[in-house]
Design a binder for these strands. Structure first.
Lengths: 190, 190
DNA sequence: GTCTATACGACGATAGAC
DNA sequence: GTCTATCGTCGTATAGAC
């Protein structure tokens, strides 16, 4: 284990960076704070990761790695998709927020775009069929993005106070028009 | 005109701040840059506006002041709402982006929440009727937010390359389920 | 090969002279 | 009302100790 010590420092930095970036955001977390929490010299952070931005991208990519699992009946896909957001882990929420807010910093925007494509658009594209499935998948991803925007960025208090079921039953019929456009009313989601 | 010179400086700072904040964002615009463009001393910027953050909030509030005008037949409200986003002024787009990205800085988040409520939720609440109109208005605002998110933040290239008409005709039926939930299919928007 | 010490330029903000 | 000087902190680079 020639690099055991170095790797241990790197891991400690990664852990501290993940914690601080998700809880205080990119601008709110300083290299010195991260180094202090990892019990390491501030210069080591730059030495190991090149820059604060690269450390941010590396840790956020690791956090945003898991794509949606949409397997199951197409009839209830809209409901499951919405429930996924409403019951999302605080960590996923914080990662999304940190990426969005830093998306005008260097290459962070490109990273976020890839995460959106791989995490939302691609899984939807894989399940949707029929006419205009590509546009419908991308607009369905937009609807999910809109839910995250309203709940997590705009923090619509009236929506946040609602039981998840009510949001699902109100939003799913609209989303279902993109997921199952050919199904006549009444459909499975209402 | 005792304060003529001071007001002229303040206006010049406001103009420069609006230009820089919308084109380079909050973190990307320095007090020194703003002062240089306004041809005043950097210390004057803080002296007149208290802090960079307060200058940001004041200028962004002025830019985000105009709410949506949704007057017209309810049948085509969804279409007009979407078209509003697709043909939005670059200035509106940049203001939205700057506010979202700085929404974890001090009181900016609260400012953005008020702008969302006044600019999107309130106009929708005013026009929607029927059962669950409050929740439906807020979720319709979420759908609009999702469109802005996908086009402007995630920058979905496939959507951006599409003619506006195609996005309207694909997204409007879904949005219409929140705006006109009781209308049977086929409706005016398809 | 790891790490520490130190330093540099730019940042937001302040105090006080004019 | 305006400017000069300066403060503490930021991200980052490098020289050199272990």
């Amino acid at each position: 284990m020639a690099t055991a010590k170095g790797e241990r420092s790197k891991d400690a930095i990664r852990r501290a960076a993940t914690h601080l970036f998700t809880s205080r955001g990119y601008v709110g977390s300083t290299v010195r704070d991260i180094a202090a929490e990892a019990q390491v010299d501030p210069a080591l952070v730059i030495r190991h990761f090149g820059s604060k931005e690269r450390l941010f991208i590396e840790t956020m990519q690791a956090e945003a790695g898991t794509a949606l699992d949409l397997d199951g009946p197409l009839d209830s896909l809209a409901e499951r998709l919405i429930a996924n957001i409403l019951t999302a882990e605080p960590q996923s929420r914080s990662t999304f927020l940190a990426l969005v807010r830093a998306s005008d910093t260097g290459e962070v925007g490109a990273t976020m775009r890839v995460a959106h494509e791989a995490g939302f658009v691609a899984p939807l594209l894989q399940h949707l069929t029929g006419e205009g499935r590509e546009v419908r998948a991308r607009l369905a991803a937009a609807m999910i993005g809109g839910l995250m925007y309203s709940l997590w960025i705009a923090q619509d208090d009236a929506l946040l106070a609602l039981p998840p079921d009510e949001i699902v039953s109100a939003y799913a019929p609209a989303l279902d028009r993109l997921v199952n456009p050919s199904t006549g009313r009444p459909s499975a989601v209402e």
